[in-house]
Design a protein around this nucleic acid. Structure first.
Lengths: 198, 198
DNA sequence: TCTATTTTTAGCACTTGGTACTAATACCAG
DNA sequence: CTGGTATTAGTACCAAGTGCTAAAAATAGA
């Protein structure tokens, strides 16, 4: 049995229903709420909810943007613009809205860490490089719109222990915002790489 | 001037065009290729390309799934299952394929860092909490399928400097995989929170 | 060149999920 | 009982198609 709801209640429910499933047609909604299709259409108008196809299109467009945003999860964070294996590397990372706390607009620390860590991994000229230890300092807050330039410099390599120490520094407008020391583990020592070094 | 293309050429181009912009109508395509709408429709049939609305719907559906996957970028990494503000917190993070190096299947360090850092931020009972410094050790490699359980314990608070030190430990099957010390900055000291503590 | 086949175009009826508008009811309150 | 809100019904129309038939144009084969 359908409990007769007031207009307000119905419209509230309509909003929620469409919010959680934008793919629902007016007819389905009409059946669901036990009213006519016209009533649903009036409701949509009053609430300025676009029609099904527009809603679907919006989702499609919105997420076509997201596709780009969600990519970097498994990839290197930031774009590497210069690299000399086992020597140094530089990457750029543009801080966007999705990287900052809504509260204060300051970038979440782990994004800066991720850029630095990615770069430390990349600079190692080895098949396998793992972070063993990291000491990092967040010197200055970074905000959306900032372009973070990160430099990694390979400091020393302990051939016996298969360890390499890397210093990483991140700047925004030439001002230091982040620095870190990364101790990396590598399978092979320096110089004994695989043959193809193109 | 439009160069007359063979059927094959046109169909190849059609595939590419729709691939890169699924929002194009048959009419637009017809104009673009200098053929009739009917020809475009025959082509679509032969290549079994669905109509515009279906294509848009597909994009929307595909990306509605992604939305869930891409959400955690700006949110807390891992699911907080227990929290006592300014005391301790526990979160769970299931390592998936997208978190590991393809090469060796080992989780990228910055995901473990992100979970730990998120938890350190969350455990602070303050409007604003920023990471100032972090010393972390990646004790043992973590692999896809592993469930990482991370505990954060608030160690001490320096009220004058608005700093709080937090110890974080992550385990997989009760074995330590990651540990870290986080020094956090907070705006307000302990105890002087906003009124509503429900 | 003429025919046969493929390719392209045209036209019509029908579909979905609507908009825009008008008109008729139903309901509820003062 | 009357007025206003809410709901329903019905019509014409639209975009972007499908499905089908049929004709015209282009191309290839001998």
């Amino acid at each position: 049995m359908l409990i007769k709801r007031s207009k307000k209640e119905r419209q509230q429910l309509l909003l929620e229903t469409i919010e959680e499933n934008p793919f629902v047609t007016d007819e389905q909604l009409a059946t669901q709420f036990g009213v006519s299709v016209q009533t649903i259409r009036l409701d949509r108008m009053e609430l300025s909810i676009p029609e099904l196809r527009e809603r679907i299109k919006d989702v499609a467009e919105r997420n076509l943007e997201n596709e780009v945003k969600s990519l970097p999860i498994n990839e290197v964070i930031g774009e590497i613009i210069d690299i000399e294996l086992d020597e140094r590397a530089i990457s750029i990372f543009d801080v966007k809205e999705e990287h900052v706390f809504q509260r204060n607009g300051i970038a979440r620390g782990h994004h800066l860490f991720a850029q630095a860590n990615s770069l430390a991994v990349a600079v190692i000229d080895d098949e396998l490089a793992l972070t063993v230890r990291a000491n990092v300092v967040f010197v200055k807050p970074v905000r959306a719109g900032d372009r973070v330039i990160t430099k990694a410099i390979v400091r020393e390599t302990n051939k016996e222990k298969n360890r390499t120490n890397i210093d990483v520094m991140s700047t925004v407008n030439n001002k230091l915002v982040f620095k870190g020391e990364f101790e990396m583990y590598r399978t092979k020592g320096v110089g004994e790489q695989h043959e193809n070094s193109d």
